[in-house]
Amino acid sequence: MSFSLFIEQLLNGVQFGVMLFLISAGLTLVFGIMNLINLAHGALYMSGAFIAAAMIKYTGNFFVAVVVAVVATAGIGAVMERLILRRFYARDHLDQVLVTFGLILVFNDLVRLVWGVVPVQLRLPGPFSGSVQLMAEVQYPAFRLVILAVGLLVALGLYFVVVHTRIGMWIRAGASNRPMASALGVDVGLIFSLVFAAGAALAGLAGLMAGAISSVQVGMGEPVLILALVVTVIGGIGSIRGAFLAALIIGIVDTFGRVLLPPALGSMVIFMLMAAILAWRPKGLFPVNA
């Protein structure tokens, strides 16, 4: 492997990692703060991609489509929380897994009813659909650089909100001590709804970003969901910092694993990594509330 190829593969790994972070951020936020395992996160991811694709088709404007898709996915998430998931905060994890599994099935068939079985196209605006010359030997797809930038911005933004703002303080208070937070006059119910909607918006954003480079089709959320859960757990449930680091590790390990190892081993490598990390640190890299 030449040096420039190594650099390009490293960039691929980091870019894949940042993509994984985008997918996992909402999941770990909801999981960590409300103690809710939301398997339907993948369904929200799919919704974001389908809505964006439809909006690009009808408005022809990529940026309008991004905004509409993110807001609409947040809305779907909020409705889902109000109608069903709200009553599951106090139930055990198994019930949460089951009800959100049911939601995945429902979402998949609803999308099929609305959009049909044919995968849809998410058309990128001209400058994003080509590639740019980064180094002498490295030509890189432009939109992957956009994903990289958006992912890093989201990471910074989340870190800032959770650590430095009043809302973030409330969120952390709600997560660690719900009765106390209520006693201090924080409307925990509202905060939880907002956090859930924010998590859904992140899923939608990730879905439309991924939809630009891969297939927008029914069921696209499920394979990604597993990866997001892997990232969440390796990082330590609820830890944004952990999720970011875990996503980068997995992105890089997976990329090089695929190139350097035989295919069967390449598919196994991130699961072997997860088992090893959890055997070593049973609560992930950055345990929250440890």
Partner: peptide
């Protein structure tokens, strides 16, 4: 090159 069935991202393979 044989890749995993159902793989989503081919950036690494395309770079090679």
């Amino acid at each position: 090159v044989f890749t995993a069935f159902g793989q989503l991202d081919y950036s690494a393979e395309i770079a090679q």
